[in-house]
């Protein structure tokens, strides 16, 4: 129970961030012609931002199942890297059915926060996932029902929450470790290139995130391979 509560607390800011992001998703889904319960169902069962956004855009047209599958696989490929990474950080208790069930909750943010822990317990991970899942579902519900009522200025400010949280995860370790600082600098430069350069900017964001993160981490792994003790001490 103690582990669950600690996870719950760690997940709270993610939930807050998700509430604002999925709020926007709810608004977009309704504006594309989905009903509120369809939007909520998508969020409850999928729990991903870029994938859902791309997904509803495909769903507007009938029968494009293959296009849906391909776009989802490319956008979400990053999750499989995170899953492998997380599999190295979980406690021995985290096995079997627990992996099948809790693996559902591996999102960028939940993964990033869980990665800060050594020996992630199933209960901690469940606690960590609770607020984000509720926030993601509730935000979608609110966005699809009352999205157009909330003053724009409040909504806009909420959209920065998730990025503030990212900063709080990335900056402290980058301050301590030069290799991490260099890896994230490479990522930032690469992603700006993919974001702004003509033609390259047509690459869907889910894919360009994967390209940048994988390239920068590969460079990091070869330039600054880390001793295993160092990783465990983090």
């Amino acid at each position: 129970m103690k582990q669950y509560l600690r996870g719950l607390r760690l997940g709270f800011p993610i939930g807050l961030g998700y509430l604002s992001v999925s709020f926007t998703f709810g608004i977009m889904a309704v504006s594309l012609g989905f009903s509120w319960y369809q939007a909520v169902l998508i969020s409850m069962l999928t729990l991903t931002s870029a994938g859902q956004l791309a997904g509803i855009q495909v769903m507007v047209n009938p029968g494009q199942y293959i296009a849906m599958l391909i776009s989802q696989l490319t956008i979400n490929m990053r999750y499989s890297f995170m899953s492998v990474s997380l599999s190295q950080k979980v406690s021995p208790k985290f096995k079997g059915i627990k992996r099948w069930l809790l693996g559902f909750f591996i999102t960028d943010e939940i993964f990033a926060v869980a990665s800060q822990e050594n020996d992630v317990e199933p209960k901690l991970f469940l606690g960590l996932s609770t607020a984000p899942w509720i926030g993601w579902t509730l935000g979608t519900l609110l966005g699809s029902l009352i999205g157009n009522i909330l003053p724009e200025i409040v909504m806009c400010s909420l959209c920065i929450a998730i990025y503030g949280m990212f900063l709080a995860i990335v900056i402290p370790p980058a301050k301590k470790s030069k290799p991490i600082l260099i890896v994230i600098a490479i990522t930032a430069v690469l992603n700006c290139i993919l974001y702004y350069v003509p033609y390259l900017r047509d690459i869907p964001s889910g894919i360009s995130i994967s390209i940048c993160a994988i390239t920068a981490s590969l460079i990091g792994a070869f330039l600054f391979p880390i001793e295993s003790e160092e990783i465990e001490n983090e």
Binding site: S85, F166, T187, L190, I209, L218, A221
Partner: peptide, 12 residues
């Protein structure tokens, strides 16, 4: 590689 991935994903 797996150690760097979470940070690079967040920054990307």
């Amino acid at each position: 590689f797996l150690y760097y991935i979470p940070y690079s994903v967040l920054v990307a």
